[in-house]
Design a protein around this nucleic acid. Structure first.
Lengths: 139, 139
DNA sequence: ACTATAGTTTAGAATTATTATAAAGTATGT
DNA sequence: ACATACTTTATAATAATTCTAAACTATAGT
């Protein structure tokens, strides 16, 4: 077992998730990266099956990604409403989104500063602030 | 024909859309309001069929809402990714969103001020900025 | 190691939102 | 009133996601 596999076995166990072959490989694909990573379930499934020769069903990818999201290892991005996207960058951060090309670009949290915020409805607290900059080709 | 119907017949004609019974009624349901209105296609369809006894198919609601969106009478809201929501407030504005209750609350544009914005990728311009404040019940 | 058990994976079916199709219906200019 | 182009409609098709129940597997206890 590789050093990275050992790491993820531990991570999974600590989360109360059994370290199965499928989950370990998903961890490697998602988290063994320099940069953060955005993906759709179908993209990820193709990567696992084609680039890593893993036998995995679509349902397992859904199950695992939702489990990781619940544990806070992934953040769901709500942009466009055709399908779900997830991001390995779970910290509060923002996006450029080009609706024409469907391109999504991360923006560091410190690149955006909000001077004035509204007071939340009574009994409610703000958990996260997400800013989307919709962009398009300059004429 | 009521005064409000006449108004919408004109509005539709001016948009190059024929004023059909279905489109006029959709206009009345959406735009005869004090406050702005958020809705999903299925919500709107139920309102039209049950509260207004209009014989209308789901496909027509989709067609009409998309036509209105294209004309700039409605704005699509990208929150959650289960289904599309639309807003009669088409000006640039922001939202509180409670993921638990799925409640969506408009925030006036002037309630939010952004001090620092990132520079868009080269060749691209920013069309719109949308801020979502995710909220939840205070403990 | 062996077993029982609870947690996982899987293929396929079911569900849900949305879009496409093509036939019947309707608004509009002449 | 007529022709035509635009609309509506029921239904089928598509696509993302969730459900189901059976087969599989990690793990704790022996």
């Amino acid at each position: 077992m590789s050093i990275s596999e050992v790491k993820y076995v531990e991570k999974l166990r600590n989360s109360g998730l059994r370290p199965t072959k499928q989950r370990i490989k998903i961890c490697e694909v998602l988290f063994n990266r320099e940069k953060t990573f955005h993906f759709s379930i179908s993209d990820l499934t193709k990567i696992l099956q084609n680039q890593h020769n893993l036998k995995i069903s679509l349902a397992t990818v859904y199950n695992t990604i939702h489990a990781f999201q619940k544990k806070g290892y992934l953040k769901e991005i709500n942009i466009g409403n055709d399908m779900s996207y997830f991001d390995t960058n779970t910290s509060s951060h923002h996006h450029f989104y080009d609706q024409q090309t469907k391109e999504l670009i991360d923006i560091n949290s410190q690149e955006v500063e909000i001077k004035k915020s509204p007071t939340p409805p009574s009994g409610k607290k703000v958990d996260d602030i997400e800013v989307t900059f919709r962009i398009s080709k300059k004429n």
